[in-house]
Design a protein around this nucleic acid. Structure first.
Lengths: 222, 222
DNA sequence: GATAAACCTTAAAAAAACTATGGTTTCATT
DNA sequence: AATGAAACCATAGTTTTTTTAAGGTTTATC
């Protein structure tokens, strides 16, 4: 009789209770599943750090957005994921995110390379169970919407460098072209050139920025 | 009571019988599943073409390697996949391949963007059923080993252009550096530069080509 | 130990990317 | 319709990167 230790970190107390309820009822070979929870960046961090010198968690579920109490600058789960990877590399990490935002997914897949990624609207008892099992037996597990995003990225052949991505990202969040210089370490002129170049890559020559970011979104870059 | 039409194309008669046997026994809402089969590039092509003007297949399972009878030059399923996409874009395509060869997977994901990809050693009744259901409800479906390969690609940040990829690929199949000029449209000198550059990207400076292609394989590029 | 391939260095040439400048178009607001 | 702001475009000079050729050194193989 093995025990499978799970840590779930989410700042919504209620949803976390839901996770705990579901997870602990999973029947999986002859494992006993124990779910520990934390509802802030800080407490999650502490639990991970403490685990280093005691029982390591088998799986850590991690919300991408964690609002620490009394602050409004969100600590993101990505940092916590990186920390966990470093401290307890043997723990499997599954990210949970409320949006299937490609930009975020891509960034997390690169910086943390988690063993699983679930878009919150995909989460239900069945997918949670699948995730736990897949991740312990043969990672990775990606939920349906996450897979959709990944598919888009894999099926395109366009390769962008960091500056391109930054330009696309900032355009997509409404940054004006003239203000882009503050975010991209390039001259205004180069930025314009790159925008032109991007538009030709995405087949939106002579169209406006909206067309560009729409195309980039469709191909999974934003 | 709907009917779900499936075409399975594989040059091994026996395995195809296996697929048919399993697939037709899947219970899926109130669908009747009908499996049609073809065991060569030619017959598969014909069935797909014929389907254009009659009942389209809902799903086409497609073996990546198809040896046509009496020839030894394998027609690959990739071409057939491209054809199917063109003729019957509404049919879902699931590729099956015996190796989890990243180069092939990447190439197929780009050129055909199939709705599913299964590595043959992952195929069993359960995964087949999952594939059918996932692909009809919310594609894509990737089998476990395929996901492993995809994960590698997504988690790395290295981006290579076509020349780099071609160099890596040819090195991996044993092409000698001096013969590379015939495949890469670059001077010998440039090829050496790029090899050096690649080795630094993959952290195999001052090591030999084997180390490079091993590293590239590990990261999912070959 | 002779030979072929791989590897490295250098310097020149070519290509690509960047930048500054000055102008034109587009769009929203009045 | 007039105006101002932002977006867009074209040109040309500059910088950076990539390619190339030519030469030599190391490594592996028979």
């Amino acid at each position: 009789m093995n025990t499978l230790r799970i840590l779930a970190i989410d700042d919504h107390e209620m949803t976390m209770l839901g996770y705990k309820f579901i997870l602990e009822r999973i029947s999986f070979d002859n494992h006993t599943i124990i779910v520990d929870t934390a509802n802030s960046f800080k407490s999650g961090k502490k639990k991970i750090e403490d685990s280093v010198n005691s029982f390591k968690y088998d799986i850590i579920f991690l919300d991408v957005q964690l609002y620490p109490p009394n602050e409004n600058q969100p600590h993101n789960g990505e940092d916590l994921g990186k920390l966990a990877r470093k401290l307890v590399p043997e723990s499997k990490i599954i990210f949970m995110s409320s949006f299937s935002d490609n930009h975020r997914i891509n960034s997390i897949l690169k910086s943390v390379d988690p063993d699983g990624y679930m878009v919150k609207t995909d989460i239900d008892p069945k997918s949670l169970e699948d995730a736990v099992k897949t991740v312990t037996i043969q990672p990775p597990y990606y939920s349906s919407k996450a897979l959709g995003a990944i598919r888009k990225r894999m099926s395109t052949t366009i390769s962008l460098d960091d500056n391109d991505k930054r330009i696309l990202y900032h355009l997509s969040i409404g940054t004006k072209t003239k203000d882009l210089e503050q975010h991209v370490e390039l001259s205004a002129s180069s930025i314009e050139n790159r925008k032109r170049h991007l538009k030709s890559l995405f087949g939106t020559e002579k169209e406006n920025d909206l067309a560009l970011i729409l195309a980039a979104k469709n191909r999974g870059f934003i």
